[in-house]
């Protein structure tokens, strides 16, 4: 032991750097070089092919002067806020119920995992059918005798974005539930017992003791769901393809269209940079709080 120690010390010195090198290099080149490149394109006059002149913020002005981009931003806002609220609500309630009904967990664990294995394209196809007024829910209810029943949101420009929220909630609520459930399992039961001896009711205990203790779970759910919301592309493509009209345009579909269909590479790059900045605005405070916590922990 005593004689080997210097060697393992020396190993400890160079090994981490050596094994880290490939992945760090990949990340460094891949992430930063590519982001820089996209950033550069966003301040150039690129249209169909990249050009490397500098035109300042012209592409950003053009981006913000495009009505479609405004629709995309508003939709992103509607979609993300509703999607986060409903998914977290459903996920939290289901996690609490599941935490109480331990026996049901075996069966449910499989079920809440399966939507994760589904491509948004498949989800979108299923929901497109279900929400189609001539095929899905509306037709089934009509054929059951309620002739006047109308549920045609997916064809209505004002409501179509909400149908995408429904499908996204369906896909992600099991995932949110799993994270909340893991958080609930980490809470010591003696806390609940103590509160009960004090005479608190169960809903009260959950509202004022348990939920505040789930703060780390809330943080990870919020970060992961906002990421899903901002990169949302597949679901829109499968369900409405941006329509009716441009009513369900979101930033990802806008970026794809501008860059690869309408030869506005500069505008596309500018929209991608705007998305990146939005994510950064959410992630950096989260990272900061995580770092601060881990520093206090050690």
């Amino acid at each position: 032991m005593t004689r080997k120690k210097p060697i393992s010390d020396r190993v400890a010195d160079w090994l981490p750097r050596l094994v880290m090198a490939p992945s760090l290099l990949v990340i460094l080149v891949g992430v930063y070089l590519f982001i820089a490149w996209t950033g550069w394109i966003s301040v150039s006059s690129s249209r169909m092919v990249p050009s490397y002149d500098f035109v300042g913020l012209e592409q950003y002005y053009r981006l913000w002067a495009t009505p479609r981009w405004h629709i995309a931003v508003v939709n992103l806002f509607i979609f993300s806020s509703l999607f986060l609220l409903v998914t977290m609500g459903v996920g939290l309630v289901m996690a609490i119920l599941l935490d109480q009904n331990i026996r049901a967990e075996g069966a449910l664990r499989a079920v809440y995992l399966y939507p994760m294995a589904l491509s948004f394209i498949v989800t979108g196809t299923a929901w497109k059918w279900i929400l189609n007024p001539d095929l899905g829910v509306q037709k089934v209810v009509n054929s059951l005798g309620w002739e006047g029943f109308v549920f045609n949101w997916i064809t209505q420009p004002t409501f179509a974005i909400y149908t995408i929220v429904i499908a996204a909630v369906w896909q992600s609520s099991g995932f949110a539930m799993a994270i909340f459930l893991a958080g609930l399992r980490g809470i010591d039961n003696s806390v609940i017992k103590a509160a009960q001896i004090e005479g608190a009711t169960l809903p009260r205990i959950y509202a004022s003791i348990i939920v505040p203790m789930l703060r780390p779970a809330f943080l990870s759910v919020i970060v992961l769901l906002s990421y899903i919301a901002i990169k949302n592309f597949d679901l829109v493509l499968a369900m409405t393809n941006g329509g009716p009209g441009n009513a369900t345009e979101v930033p990802s579909t806008f970026m794809f269209q501008a860059t690869f269909r309408r030869n506005q590479m500069g505008v596309g790059a500018a929209s991608a940079m705007m998305m990146l900045m939005t994510v950064a605005a959410i992630i950096i405070p989260y990272l900061y709080s995580e770092l601060k916590e881990s520093r206090n922990g050690h």
Binding site: L33, F34, T38, F233, P251, T259, M275, V279, I283
Partner: peptide
Amino acid sequence: WLFSNRMAPPAVFLLP
């Protein structure tokens, strides 16, 4: 930092 990179939207990497 490594983990934060996962959060960059794929759209940023499409063009490069």
